[in-house]
């Protein structure tokens, strides 16, 4: 796998370029179709409220995919990711309006491991709440 970031050029604390990802109801419908996850909590607010949610919420896996982009855009080759895990701490609530929600992702190098591997720790926020916790990716650098 060919990453474009050199292991020797990063340090613990190196920040990856932060990114923000807008999410609307249309985003969720498209993701439902592509992923095959048609759980109605992601598109039907009547259903979402009936199971105790405040409104329609984004697929956790959409948020996880968005956060991964901060890492894969940084390294270039998405195949450089060898390990990736998150905890879904709060839902991303997506109101039925033109703006929807925003997922804001920051990341930094937390540990330099052997074999050109680094551990990147990510934080994803939406509406001022942390929506991903314990979010870590291990990537192989050049």
């Amino acid at each position: 796998m060919t990453a474009t970031v050199a292991y020797d050029e990063v340090e613990v604390g190196t920040e990856l370029p932060a990114q923000s990802f807008p999410v609307t109801r249309a985003t969720l419908v498209q993701y439902a179709g592509a992923s095959g996850d048609f759980n109605p909590i992601h598109w039907n607010e009547k259903f979402a409220r009936s199971v105790g949610l405040p409104d329609v919420i984004a697929h956790g896996m959409f948020t996880m995919a968005s956060a991964a982009r901060v890492v894969t855009d940084w390294v270039g080759d998405p195949g450089a990711v060898v390990d990736y895990g998150v905890r879904f701490t709060k839902p991303v609530v997506v109101p039925n309006d033109d703006e929807g929600a925003l997922i804001e992702v920051t990341a930094k190098v937390a540990v330099k491991l052997d074999d050109n591997l680094v551990r990147v720790d990510l934080v994803a926020m939406s509406a001022g709440q942390k929506v991903l916790g314990m979010s870590r990716a291990v990537v192989r650098l050049a």
């Binding site: 968005s66 982009r69 894969t72």
Partner: peptide, 22 residues
């Protein structure tokens, strides 16, 4: 899937770009 997550990385859609990464 890549379009649904809004990710334009060419490794997902362009075989030549993917080959360039190995």
């Amino acid at each position: 899937f890549a379009e649904a997550i809004g990710d334009p990385n060419p490794a997902y859609t362009d075989p030549e770009a993917a080959k360039a990464f190995g």
